[in-house]
Design a protein around this nucleic acid. Sequence first.
DNA 1: ACATAATACATAGTTATGCAATGTATATTT
DNA 2: AAATATACATTGCATAACTATGTATTATGT
Lengths: 111, 111
Amino acid sequence: MNDEFIHKWKSQVKKGTLAFIILNVLKDNKFYGYELIEEVRKFTSIEIAEGTLYPLMNRLKKEELVVSEWVEQNSGIPRKYYSLTTIGEETLIEMTSYWSELEKAINKISK
Amino acid sequence: MNDEFIHKWKSQVKKGTLAFIILNVLKDNKFYGYELIEEVRKFTSIEIAEGTLYPLMNRLKKEELVVSEWVEQNSGIPRKYYSLTTIGEETLIEMTSYWSELEKAINKISK
DNA sequence: ACATAATACATAGTTATGCAATGTATATTT
DNA sequence: AAATATACATTGCATAACTATGTATTATGT
């Protein structure tokens, strides 16, 4: 009966987590938007809605954590590939450090 | 320079995480609001603003995950003690399971 | 041939929540 | 007497995920 609560909670947990996940996936890799959604689904069983991803990528671009480049395909729609900037890499390091603390803290509390 | 971004990001990560932390702290324990803030600060170095905690506790009460009772003090302001309900305990178990998955997924991605 | 699904991008509006600012009241410290 | 700490609470703002919707191309099924 509180499935509704759990559902909303998971959505809230994603706030912030998604940016962290995307930056991690882009570390040492280039991916285009649609591919990022699939990649995250495979690795984490987390579903990212398209209406979530594209605004997110635009925020990350505006903050200069990622850059994008259009790549024409032999057939089909051109793809916009994203990759980390230096700022993006530095930010990811700080985020990783915070996440690690959070992980430890929750493990300490929840046992 | 992107301290601003990091700051906002941490705030976003707290969305959802805080409810999970609070429910964990209340497992097998009773705490009053102000004490919860101190408890979390001690264990996690996470700062919860009062303007965050009290609305959060009211939401958790409305969702019937916690109950509260006023306890008069020999001196000073009466304290409102919170404790988990059965629904709260069940919900915490589901949350723990999701969190554990998320933790694994991020560890997989970030290495 | 035609419809459906999958790929690939994007935006507008809704909703939820952390936080700063502000307020009330009591107790303790300087 | 003033400042700080304790203890509750609310209002308004900013942020971000999600649903719904839209455009366009290619592949698959009947």
